[in-house]
Nucleic acid binder design. Structure first.
Lengths: 261, 261
DNA sequence: AAGTGGTCTAGACCACCAA
DNA sequence: TGGTGGTCTAGACCACTTA
């Protein structure tokens, strides 16, 4: 009666497990060190393997662990900070910032891409279905930081945006991708627009990022504006486990995060 | 022999399930509509409940579904875009942007907070342990968008940063929090620094965000610089399921994302 | 071939919400 | 009180890596 029943909520096992493991990682393990395998860890803590895995999954989500099938679970290094918003208003590929052109192709835009391209154009051009029939050049790029692929990007450039685009005759491959970027850079960039959200890796992106499909990723969507409207849209898929996106307005960079509870 | 064995990889059940459900959500369901419960869905698809849950978890991670214990699973509305980087270089609380001061307190900084505050100060002041002994004012804020709490923030202000801070005598509560912010705004802001990463909600943040502990969140860490160095640091915890962080340099806003595979 | 993490099952019980 | 999602178990088999 008088007892206030303060927090009688039983903490879930996996949550407690995660806390214990997290502290063990801080004190008793070095970066890169291999943990005991899941079956042994589960036995050691007296829980089912599924419960143990639930704790490991969260720690991996937080960038503390790295798990690879057939290999084992290792202690992850601190997340690498990748600059996303430092160079203000520039076309993709204008500065050597770790991006590598991979390939380029031409296709009709999906509904989602069309929607991204349509917004911001101001005039209500959605009346006719013309935009959907216009082909879109897609450029695939990859971003490498500290020897590791941290992001895969798809850039969509409507053929109508860039006049010189139809003259490109390079065969598929990096050369063609670079050619498309070069043409794009000829235009006057009026502004850009960026958003970040959580997603899960599509099969193709996952392969490029050396992760399993469905792995958590940070989706960075950028729209590039010219006087004519939205000239291009890119969707970059960053590994959420290993990356920290930085939007430093200056050269300064945050070195480490993790605010303990 | 001649058969190239093209992609003999069997797609995991939960992955296929997710695809099927995703398309069903697009075509046959309206926002807010309640899905059949997990046991029935599992039976309908002929899989174990755990497998069905794996698919639902991913869809929730992608912001397509919303699940509430004791209630059910509903179709989520499109993510709300919350502006994070629009107002350039301003102290927290300077513009009425949906943030509400909740409380303020004073405590010794944790090692992680200390680290964030130390970096960027230029001079090697880490020699003495003085900073660790200096109390830090912590301000709790909450951000509401469209009637929903989308973020919880903890702002750390070293007492040494702001001279007028020691004179504050307001009792705990919103009034005290606002008083601390007011003092902070008196300083000249030299610059700021921002990073975004994936995390899981601590118990206190989860409560504020109306989620379970461990829910996926986007951690936005901001450092505020004055001539004297890092004057304050804030860590904002955004609901990853419902939020899309926008860094628009202008008034333009992305309206919808989701690039289908 | 042996060992790892990834997937899947068929149950059980619990915490929470609404009627 | 009944129905929902959340947690947990003790198994099984599979895909992958390494030796």
């Amino acid at each position: 009666m008088g007892t206030t029943q303060l927090e009688s909520v039983p903490e879930p096992k996996y949550w407690h497990l995660k806390t214990v493991l997290s502290e063990a990682l801080d004190h008793d393990f070095a970066v890169g060190e291999i943990l005991p395998n899941e079956r042994e860890l589960a036995a050691r803590f007296g829980v089912a393997r599924a419960t143990l895995r639930q704790a490991l999954e969260q720690l991996e989500l937080e960038g503390r662990l790295q798990r690879r099938r057939g290999v084992g679970t290792t202690v992850a290094p601190p997340r690498v900070g990748v600059a996303v918003g430092s160079a203000r208003h520039s076309w993709p590929g204008e500065s050597a910032d770790g991006w590598e052109a991979v390939d380029a192709a031409e296709a009709l835009p999906t509904a989602a891409v069309l929607k991204l391209l349509a917004a911001g154009s101001g005039s209500a051009a959605s009346g006719s279905a013309s935009a959907a029939d216009q082909p879109v050049h897609t450029v695939r790029r990859t971003r490498v930081t500290e020897g590791q692929v941290v992001a895969a990007e798809l850039l969509y450039v409507p053929a109508a945006s860039v006049p010189g685009l139809s003259a490109i005759d390079a065969p598929a491959g990096p050369a063609r991708a670079r050619a498309v970027l070069r043409e794009l850079q000829r235009l006057a960039l009026d502004g850009q627009d960026r958003s970040v959200e959580l997603g899960s890796a599509r099969a193709d992106d996952a392969k490029e990022l050396d992760r399993l499909p469905g792995a958590p990723v940070l989706l960075v969507t950028t729209r590039y504006f010219t006087a004519g409207g939205t000239a291009a849209v890119s969707v970059a898929t960053y590994r959420a486990d290993t990356c920290r996106l930085t939007f430093g307005d200056e050269g300064v960079e945050i070195t480490e995060t993790r605010v303990a509870s």
